[in-house]
Design a protein around this nucleic acid. Structure first.
Lengths: 230, 230
DNA sequence: TAGATTGTTAATCGATTAACAATC
DNA sequence: TAGATTGTTAATCGATTAACAATC
């Protein structure tokens, strides 16, 4: 009854997809072996971190030689659960929802948008994406059926902020256990449901902070840009 | 010549926009004062963290009372450089670039898309967004002019992965100092340029990992879902 | 064997949290 | 004054990194 493998640190889990991406690229270039130093360089991290991260997966390298690219790709994919495709459902077919449904980057990396739903009857029926991967916007009432039919466990919230909490509840009620939230609100979900949040404006706000610092670093010390204290 | 303020930890900078979002919401609801406990609850973190984070900005609370919402909004905005709008330019007018240019969430939070460029002549001329904020796709050759005219310092890379590095170089050459990268590649930029990366598929991959764990936790110990070791 | 590179240990660093004196 | 809540200290935890023995 002991777990087969210790928990992998969050920080490592977040980097594994980056290593995977780099390794797949190298495999395509015909590279068979790579050292922690080489992988680190390409992934933009340091070599000790690469070795430590990979050591959580097991001892898959060869001392004096490095790591076999194809084998490492296989192991990282297996660890992340990427050895099979994942169906995904999107709730909210506005600007962003439509772009996500039509975004090839998901399908390319093993995620199939099997459904997109919206409350707005005017949006229902719109076809998004192309070829085999095209989906049609359906009413929210069909969410449970879509989830049940396709065995979806990952849902994407792409509604306006005011509708996001209800959307999340509808996803959870339909059986979704992982949520990717694009709405700028904090979602409340039952324990056991995993939420990740991507707030596009927040990313810009953080860049704004860095730009701001750059400006004040550049400003002369007697600058008029001084902070105002009450 | 000493810096007016110690550096704020990255983890804190990443949370400030969340506090800001919650505080603006509360201000709209007519709430004047909030305790670290209340803000923590709404932001989904713990109260000690809120107090520590806010303490990096200064001592803006009142013991026994809490924080004045409006004043905290003002201070966080000032710290993040959000006391004025920021112009933003997008390179790449595919699916994602078009969605970002038309995405109201940027403008709502103080970011103006002042230009979007693409190498594809077929894309040039497409109008995106609506009303005052509409922009027209322009050729990449106009990038330097757009940056110079609008004083843009933040650029968004929304090209396919194969074009992303060159796109980043064009942004930097045009004078951009902060880059938001949506392409699934590691960008190489000169020191001094800040890059943040948002990889939509990576977010799904991390959720995939959590789903995978959920499955193997649920599977009986003699399950056929056992990992294959060589 | 000599050279290279992993996997792991131990040191360091940074972030989180509990606890509480300060103070409204 | 009594109750509430901040701001800060100190303890804890987790992540990063350097260093090096193990080993190909």
């Amino acid at each position: 009854m002991t777990p087969r493998r210790r928990r992998i640190p969050d920080a490592t889990v977040a980097r594994l997809p980056v290593y995977l991406q780099v390794l797949v690229e190298q495999a395509d270039l015909g590279v068979d072996n790579i050292s922690s130093e080489g992988l680190a360089e390409l992934a933009g991290v340091n070599a000790a971190k690469v070795r430590k991260d990979l050591s959580y997966l097991g001892s898959y390298g060869t001392r004096g030689v490095g790591y076999e690219v194809a084998y490492l790709v296989y192991q990282i994919r297996r660890e992340l659960g990427l050895d099979h495709d994942w169906p995904v459902v999107i709730i909210g077919a506005g600007n962003l929802g439509q772009a996500l449904a039509g975004y090839g980057g998901f399908h390319d990396r093993g995620f199939d948008v099997v459904g997109i739903v919206d409350v707005d009857p005017d949006k229902v029926g719109i076809r998004l994406g192309d070829g085999d991967d095209a989906v049609e916007v359906r009413p929210v009432s069909e969410l449970p059926r879509i989830v049940a039919r396709s065995g979806v466990s990952i849902g994407v919230v792409a509604t306006p902020p005011s509708a996001a909490q209800q959307a999340a509840e509808q996803l959870v009620a339909a059986g979704i256990t992982s949520v990717l939230n694009f709405a700028p609100v904090v979602l409340n979900v039952p324990v056991g449901v995993t939420v990740r949040k991507v707030d596009l404006a927040v990313e810009l706000q953080i860049l704004s902070y860095h730009e701001q610092r750059r400006l004040s670093a550049a400003a002369p010390s007697g600058s008029t840009l001084r902070a105002v204290r009450p």
